[in-house]
Nucleic acid binder design. Structure first.
Lengths: 192, 192
DNA sequence: ATGATTTGTTGATCCAAGTCAACGACATTC
DNA sequence: GAATGTCGTTGACTTGGATCAACAAATCAT
C-alpha cells in the first residue's frame, strides 16, 4: 500500500514531516472487506476510525418504521467512523456496509484517544471535524430545500463517480426519494 | 454576569480548574443585541464565536430562489458561530439574527485561534465539535425521514420552549413545511 | 446454460402538502 | 383611535411525488 495518499491527505489539514506521519501511520492496520460486509453496525461502538484506500461503502440507519435510510456514501480517500460514539463509548445507530470489496486503513478508538495527545494529531482531528461539520451542514441544507431534480443534478455534478458505482435505488434512498421518482427524473433530465 | 453557567457548561466537556477557566473567560466580551439585529451576515467572515447568555436567535441562509431557510434556533447556553468560516477566512453563507434582545459572550477568531494552543481549550473545542457533528447528523437524519406531524411532535417534545418564544411561521420554515401546514398539523394534534 | 435475485423502467392512481386567497386577532406606530 | 403590519387560521384548489403493480434487463449462483 502506498502511504503517499494518506500523507498528502493529512497535509491538506496540517503541515507535518514524513517522520511525524510515519509514527502515526504505524498505529494503523489494513482491513479488507468483501462486498456486503459490515465494518460496524448499529447498537455497538465501532472498533475503528478508518481511511478508505479502495472501495465504496454506504452508511445507513434504520428509522422508526424499520426502513433503511442512507446517510452517506464513502469512496476512496474518505474517512469513515463514528468518532463521537467511540469517544463517549455510546453505541452508534449507523451501519457501515461495503458496496464493493474494500481496503481500509484502521486505527482503534484507544490508539486514537492516545494519539490525539500529540499536538499535530489533535490539531488535525479538530480541523477535520470543523470541516466535516461544515459539509454535513451544507448537505443537510441542500436536502431540506431542493427538489428531486435539483438533488439529482447536484449529485451528478458533485459526485459523478457515485452514479457509476452505486445502484440507483441506493442513490434514490440517499436523496430521500423513491427509486421510481429518480428513474423518471433521470429520463426527464436526459431529454433536455 | 454570572460566570458559573459558562464554567459549568465547559466542565461538561473537560475538567478544568476555576483559574484555568478565568484565563479563558477574560478573552470574552459581552455583546448586546436588540431584537432584529444581526450578529453576522452571509458573505462575510463572522467576527466572533459566541455563547448565548440570554435571548433567542435564528440562523438562516438564502437559497437559490431567494427564500430564507432557517437552519437552527439558539437559546440560552448555546454556542453560535461559524468556526469553519473563521478558521479558513472564507465568508459564511449563514445569517444570525436576534429574535429577542440578546446578551452574548464573544471571543474573536484571532483570540480563539491563539486560545486553542492551550491544551484543554483545544480538547474542549475538539470534543464540542464531535458532539456538534453528531447532533447535526441526527437533526439532518430526522428531517430527511419524518412527516410534518412527526417533526412537530419531535420539536414539541425536545424543544418545547422554542414554541413559546419563536413565531410559528419560523418554526414551520425550520421544519421545512408551510406555515399553513403547521397550523393544520397543530389543530390535528390538539384534537387527539 | 438455467433459474433466481437484484435492479431499473413505465403506467395508473391517490393523497399529503403546496399554493392562493381571504379574514380575524393582536401589536405597534403615529 | 385609526392605520399599518405581523401573525395565525381556514377554505378551495392543484400538484408532485408516493404507492401499487407489472414487466424488462442485468447479474449472480450453482
Amino acid at each position: 500500500m502506498n502511504t503517499d495518499t494518506l500523507y498528502t491527505h493529512i497535509c491538506s489539514y496540517v503541515q507535518i514531516s514524513r517522520d511525524e506521519f510515519e509514527l502515526f501511520f504505524n498505529l494503523f492496520k489494513t482491513v479488507h472487506l468483501k462486498k456486503g460486509d459490515f465494518h460496524y453496525i448499529a447498537g455497538k461502538v465501532p472498533k475503528y476510525w478508518s481511511f478508505t484506500v479502495k472501495g465504496c461503502l454506504r452508511e445507513y440507519w434504520i428509522d422508526t418504521e424499520g426502513n433503511e435510510k442512507i446517510f452517506q456514501f464513502y469512496e476512496e480517500n474518505a474517512w469513515v467512523g463514528q468518532i463521537q460514539s467511540m469517544v463517549t463509548q455510546k453505541p452508534t445507530d449507523m451501519n457501515l456496509q461495503a458496496l464493493e470489496d474494500c481496503e481500509l486503513l484502521c486505527i482503534t478508538g484507544d490508539d486514537m484517544c492516545n494519539a490525539v495527545k500529540t499536538p499535530w494529531i489533535q490539531n488535525f482531528t479538530m480541523h477535520k471535524s470543523f470541516s466535516d461539520n461544515a459539509s454535513i451542514m451544507e448537505n443537510s441544507n441542500r436536502i431540506k430545500s431542493a427538489s428531486p431534480e435539483e438533488l439529482y443534478l447536484e449529485i451528478l455534478k458533485e459526485r459523478p463517480s457515485l452514479l457509476l458505482r452505486v445502484p440507483q435505488h441506493y442513490i434514490a434512498n440517499f436523496l430521500g426519494i423513491r427509486k421510481e421518482t429518480l428513474s423518471r427524473v433521470r429520463r426527464r433530465v436526459a431529454h433536455l
